[in-house]
Deep mutational scan, measured.
Amino acid sequence: YYKILGVDKNASEDEIKKAYRKRALMHHPDRHSGASAEVQKEEEKKFKEVGEAFTILSDPKKKTRYD
Rank of each mutant, 00 (worst) to 15 (best):
F54K: 12
H32T: 07
R65Q: 15
T64H: 14
K17D: 05
A24V: 11
M26S: 08
E13I: 15
K63V: 03
E42W: 03
A35Q: 11
P29S: 06
A11R: 01
K62E: 15
L57W: 01
D59A: 01
P29H: 05
L57I: 00
K41S: 10
R65K: 15
D59R: 00
S36Y: 01
K45G: 04
I16F: 03
K63A: 05
K9F: 05
D8C: 05
K45T: 10
D59S: 05
D14L: 08
E49A: 13
R21V: 14
S12H: 02
P29I: 00
E15M: 06
S58G: 11
E52H: 06
I4R: 05
D14K: 08
K9S: 14
K62H: 08
H32G: 12
Y1G: 07
T55E: 13
D30Q: 08
K63Y: 02
I4F: 03
R65P: 07
E43G: 01
S33C: 04
A53C: 00
E52L: 04
K41N: 07
E49Y: 00
E13K: 12
S33Q: 12
S58K: 10
K45S: 10
A11Q: 02
G34Y: 06
P60E: 07
L57C: 03
Y66R: 08
D59K: 09
P29F: 02
A37H: 13
K48W: 01
E42H: 12
E52F: 00
K18E: 15
I56D: 04
V7F: 01
Y20S: 07
E43F: 00
A24G: 06
S33Y: 05
G6Y: 00
D30K: 11
Y20A: 11
P29G: 03
V7A: 05
K45Y: 02
I56H: 08
K17F: 11
D8H: 10
E52I: 02
I16G: 06
P60Q: 10
E49L: 12
M26W: 03
R23M: 14
R21Y: 14
Q40A: 05
P29Y: 07
G6F: 00
N10G: 11
L57G: 08
A24M: 11
L57N: 06
T64A: 15
K22P: 04
R65I: 10
G51E: 15
Y66K: 07
R65H: 13
K48T: 10
M26Q: 14
R65W: 15
V7I: 13
Y20D: 12
H28G: 06
K48D: 07
D59H: 00
S36I: 05
T55C: 08
K41A: 12
Y1N: 11
L25F: 12
K22E: 15
H32C: 04
K41C: 05
N10M: 06
R21W: 13
Q40E: 00
D30S: 12
K62M: 11
M26P: 05
G6I: 00
K62L: 14
K61V: 13
D30L: 09
H28A: 03
D8R: 02
E52N: 09
K22V: 14
E38W: 03
R23Q: 13
A11D: 07
L25D: 15
E15C: 02
R23V: 13
A24Y: 14
A11E: 03
Y2L: 02
K62N: 07
E42F: 13
P29K: 07
T55Y: 10
A53M: 01
F54A: 10
E42Q: 13
E44H: 08
M26L: 11
P29R: 04
A35T: 08
G34W: 04
S58Q: 05
K61I: 14
K18V: 10
D30N: 10
H27M: 04
Y1M: 13
H28Q: 01
T64K: 14
K9P: 12
K45R: 15
G34V: 01
E13F: 13
S12C: 07
K17S: 08
Y20H: 00
K48P: 01
K63P: 03
H27G: 04
A35W: 01
A35E: 15
I56M: 10
A53Q: 03
E38Y: 03
Y2A: 01
K3A: 12
K46H: 06
R23C: 12
K62R: 11
K62D: 09
I16E: 05
E38S: 12
F47V: 02
D8E: 14
K46F: 00
S33V: 15
E42I: 09
Y66D: 12
M26F: 04
E13P: 15
K62A: 11
S36W: 00
S33L: 13
D59P: 00
Y66E: 13
H27C: 07
R21K: 13
R21Q: 15
G6W: 00
K3P: 01
I16V: 05
K41M: 11
E43T: 06
V50M: 05
K18Y: 09
A53D: 01
L5D: 01
K48G: 06
D59C: 03
L5K: 06
K61T: 14
H27T: 03
S33H: 15
P60K: 12
E15P: 00
F54V: 10
K45D: 05
K18T: 09
I56G: 10
K17G: 05
S12T: 14
A19D: 03
E38D: 11
T55S: 15
E44A: 14
K63L: 04
F47E: 09
K61L: 12
S36Q: 08
R23N: 14
I4V: 12
P60C: 05
V39P: 04
T64N: 14
S12A: 04
N10T: 10
E43N: 07
R23E: 09
L57Y: 01
D14C: 09
A35Y: 04
A35I: 02
D14G: 04
S33I: 12
S58Y: 01
F54E: 10
I4L: 08
G6D: 08
S33N: 08
A24K: 08
R31P: 02
L25N: 11
D8T: 10
K61R: 06
K46M: 01
F54M: 06
A19E: 09
Q40K: 08
L57H: 06
E49F: 01
P60I: 10
R65S: 15
D8W: 00
S36R: 02
G6P: 02
V39Q: 11
E49W: 03
Q40F: 01
K3Q: 14
A19Q: 06
Y66Q: 15
R31H: 04
D14A: 14
G34K: 12
F54G: 11
K61H: 13
P60D: 13
T55A: 15
E43V: 04
L5M: 09
N10D: 12
H32S: 05
Y2H: 03
S58I: 05
K18I: 12
K61A: 12
K3I: 01
T55N: 14
Y66L: 12
T55Q: 13
H32Q: 03
F54H: 04
D30F: 05
R21D: 14
K63W: 03
Y2R: 00
S58R: 00
Y2K: 02
E44D: 08
D30A: 12
T55V: 02
A53R: 03
Y1E: 00
D30Y: 03
E38K: 11
V50I: 10
G6E: 08
D30W: 01
D14R: 06
A37Y: 11
